[in-house]
Write a protein that binds this DNA or RNA. Structure first.
Lengths: 304, 304
DNA sequence: ATGAAAGCGCTAACAC
DNA sequence: GTGTTAGCGCTTTCAT
């Protein structure tokens, strides 16, 4: 042992994996590395993996389901399991993958796979309550990608909670979850005479704010804007963006934790981890300054 | 072959690497995945690696030189080479690494290793000329990490070009290359009565703008701000940040290209690739509205 | 307890 | 050209 130490001996993982069948690697698939949402998750995942002596194989599917499948296939033999973030693949394909490998999915429910989910319903409830408290009565929602589980959940949360609070909702989109899409959505919002809007994610919300400011519309003076995710940029924008904070690092950590457990006890049941979210109120939301929704045909509400 | 295809046969890379000594993997080390500068490079690197059938091992050194060394050591046996971004390690340690493995470094010059460099001198020249043309005569520079090659180069570029244009410079810092550091730097700038400031990177520049705005100082009305890198956020801020654009994706691609070449011909010489940069003029810079630098002891210049 | 050997899935070198 | 075999560096099993 002393000599081995002397010579800086390190076992070859390739050789080891040949006999054990385990590689000590985890594959992480994200749809877009440039999106801070995913780099946030990735950062947490990487840190947690290292703690359990796993190395990370990284792949970017560029939002492309075919490429996603291809990448998984290619990596399959050199990893023990996968973390797939916001899969663009269809349910059936994912369920097929589950048979050959162990995987944890983020923001998606797949039978046979553990998942880490964001409590979108709670996030939406917090956002809607906040806007309702500020006197907004008609709320726009900028939809994200149609196939996204998060988008469906957020939309559902919006509808449920808006009804509870007697609010009207206007759904716009779907849009791609980008800054640019937010910019173009801003004009649609203006055309609809809305006083408050919730975007599918921060990137879009930031785009909305940017375009509104460029058009001389005050945020939050005339329109309140709420985002989702709390990417670092959200706190840097002017005004600072009110948003539903999703704990990105912890999400990545939780996912790897689940995966490592699963790998240690392959027979054990899959788990589902729901991450709590928290509305962060910043400068992009304020009281409704229009007495009533201008898009509404009813006159002022008197004697209420 | 037909049968192999039928059974979806894929060779085991572990077994293959055992005999060939090649793994088909590349290790990529970044100091902070959360920094969009690095995720931009990473995205390009990942795409280029895939084109040459290399998979990416990812590690985040958390700006920690010791951890950086440790990670390289751990990955060494399972990769053919490394891309190390903005290494925090000392020259001697890097030169030692070069002996055992092939590596490409980003934004650093190491004998025996290929490198991808950003043309910081040109970037600084463009930034200084821009500010000089706007009538600024005294320019602040917010220094980044002391050990950073980029920081030293940018500082050098600043000094040279400022002299050429007869400008005075004020160096502040060093700061960590973050938004928060930029915020705190903003107050120092105000105390120094500067009309223009160049930050080591966009994150800091954004922090400066945010804090200045919060203090009621107009950008670019009273102070012009220039960043470096052109991370996506730069174009989203209000006002949009004038910055020296570094082609992040191409930088990552170029680095992997160099590495792949090196791996194919181990005897060949190392290369150095210098990336051109381009000043992007946006809304955060404007004409100097003070007749002369207020920090100057000279009185108004008359009869000129 | 310590030591020897088989074999994981490939590739490369050799024989035919 | 086609087929056989040794051996890459480990782990695990079996024998001592």
């Amino acid at each position: 042992m002393a000599v081995a130490d002397e010579l800086h001996y390190r076992p070859s993982r390739a050789a080891r994996s040949l006999t054990t069948g385990k590689t000590g690697n985890i594959g992480v698939l994200v749809p877009d590395l440039g999106n801070p949402f995913f780099s946030g998750i990735l950062k947490g995942a990487q840190a947690r993996a290292r703690e359990s002596n796993y190395a990370i194989f990284l792949a970017d599917s560029e939002e492309n389901p075919r490429l996603e499948m291809e990448l998984v296939r290619e990596m399959a033999r050199q990893v023990d399991g996968f973390l797939i973030c916001s899969p663009r693949l269809g349910d059936s394909q994912l369920e097929q993958l589950v048979r050959d490998t162990t995987l944890v999915v983020m923001n998606r429910r797949i039978r046979g796979a553990s998942s880490v989910l964001v409590d979108n319903a709670s996030g939406m409830r917090q956002a809607v309550e906040h806007l309702a408290a500020l006197g907004h009565t008609r709320i726009g929602f900028l939809c994200g990608p149609e196939r996204s589980w998060s988008n469906r959940e957020r939309l559902r949360g919006l509808r449920n909670n808006a009804r509870t609070h007697g609010l009207e909702t206007v759904e716009l989109g779907p849009f791609s979850p980008t800054f640019e899409a937010g910019q173009s959505a801003a004009d649609l919002i203006l055309a609809r005479n809305l006083t408050a809007v919730i975007a599918f994610n921060d990137l879009m919300a930031l785009g909305v704010m940017s375009r509104l400011t460029d058009r001389g519309v005050s945020v939050p003076g005339e329109i309140s804007v709420v985002g989702f995710d709390d990417i670092p940029m959200a706190g840097m924008a002017a005004p600072h963006l009110t948003t539903v904070a999703v704990p990105l690092g912890p999400a990545g950590r939780a996912a790897i934790e689940l995966l490592v457990e699963q790998l240690a006890r392959p027979q054990a049941d899959q788990h589902e981890e729901m991450l709590a979210v928290q509305l962060i109120v910043r400068g992009s939301t304020g009281p409704n300054t229009q007495g009533h929704p201008t898009g509404d045909v009813r006159g002022p509400i008197l004697g209420h």
